[in-house]
Simulated assay, not measured.
Amino acid sequence: MRVMVLVKATAESEAGDMPAAEILAEMGRFNEELAAAGILLEAAGLKPTSAGKRVAFDGTGRSVRDGPFSATSELVAGFWLWEVKDLDEAVAWVKRCPNPMPGPSEIEIRPLYEMSDFADV
Rank of each mutant, 00 (worst) to 15 (best):
V5G: 01
R110K: 15
E89W: 02
K53D: 05
V121G: 11
M101Y: 01
G52C: 12
E89R: 00
E108F: 07
E32I: 13
G78R: 00
S13K: 02
G78Q: 02
G16E: 05
I107S: 00
G45A: 13
L46H: 09
A37P: 09
P104I: 06
R29P: 01
K85S: 10
P104Q: 14
A77S: 11
V94Y: 03
M1S: 11
E33H: 11
T10K: 03
V5H: 01
A43M: 05
A21C: 09
E89T: 03
M18S: 14
M101G: 00
M115S: 15
R2N: 14
E26S: 07
V64M: 11
L34E: 00
P102G: 12
D86T: 05
A20W: 08
E108D: 10
C97F: 06
C97K: 03
R2F: 06
G103A: 13
R62H: 14
V5C: 04
E42M: 12
R29C: 01
L81H: 09
G28W: 04
V121F: 08
S50W: 02
A71T: 15
E89F: 01
E114R: 10
I23K: 08
D17S: 12
A35M: 14
E26H: 12
G59H: 12
R29N: 06
S70Q: 15
L46W: 09
A51C: 09
K53E: 09
P68Q: 05
A21R: 11
I23W: 05
E22F: 07
K53M: 10
A92L: 10
P68I: 08
P100K: 02
M27V: 05
S13R: 01
E22P: 03
M101N: 01
P111L: 09
K85F: 09
R62I: 07
G45F: 02
P102I: 06
K95W: 10
L41I: 09
D86V: 02
I23T: 14
P100Q: 04
G28C: 08
V64Q: 11
V121N: 07
D88Y: 11
T60Y: 14
W80K: 00
F118D: 00
G61I: 13
F30C: 01
P111V: 05
N99Q: 12
V84W: 00
E42Y: 14
P68K: 02
A90M: 07
G103F: 13
E83H: 09
V7P: 00
L6D: 01
A77D: 03
V76K: 02
E22V: 04
E74M: 09
E12I: 10
K8M: 10
P68H: 03
E32S: 15
A90D: 00
L34C: 10
V76N: 04
D86M: 06
E42K: 13
V3M: 06
